[in-house]
Amino acid sequence: MSQTPDLSLAIWRKSSRSGANGACVEVAAHAGVIGVRDSKNLGGAVLAFNSDEWHAFVLGVKSGSLAATL
């Protein structure tokens, strides 16, 4: 089991394209870790990526290969 990174000093930010409905995520980079969290639950779970994982995630989102099917 990997250790949870300490992101307590991280500066979290939301996209400027975030809507007013509160359904947003926040992203922070700190100490070699990129964290993603739910903006409505600041004390909740955080997804943590290293730089290679984050790059692959962003490329997947941009290419549409991570699009959900409902």
Rank of each mutant, 00 (worst) to 15 (best):
V61A: 08
S18G: 07
S18A: 11
V36Y: 01
G35M: 02
L9I: 04
N21G: 13
G22M: 04
T4W: 14
I34Y: 03
A29L: 11
V46G: 03
V61D: 05
S63I: 11
A29C: 11
P5M: 03
G43V: 04
G22P: 03
L66G: 12
A29P: 00
K14W: 12
K62L: 14
L66S: 09
F57S: 13
A45C: 14
D6P: 02
V33C: 14
C24I: 02
S16T: 04
Q3L: 10
G32L: 06
Q3H: 08
I11Y: 13
A67Y: 11
V25M: 01
V33G: 01
V25Q: 10
M1A: 12
G60T: 02
S8A: 08
S51M: 10
E26N: 04
G43N: 10
D52Y: 12
R13A: 11
A56H: 09
S15E: 03
A48W: 02
R17T: 01
A28N: 07
N41R: 13
A10H: 11
P5H: 03
M1F: 09
M1W: 10
S39H: 02
A10L: 08
S63D: 12
S8L: 07
V61R: 04
F57L: 14
H55E: 15
C24E: 09
V36T: 06
S39W: 01
M1P: 05
H55R: 15
L7H: 09
K14M: 15
L70E: 15
G19L: 13
H55S: 15
A67N: 12
T69D: 15
L42G: 02
V46I: 07
A10G: 05
S16K: 09
D6Y: 10
S2R: 14
I11H: 15
I11E: 15
N21M: 08
L59G: 05
G22T: 06
S65E: 12
R13H: 08
G35K: 07
S39N: 01
L66W: 09
S39K: 07
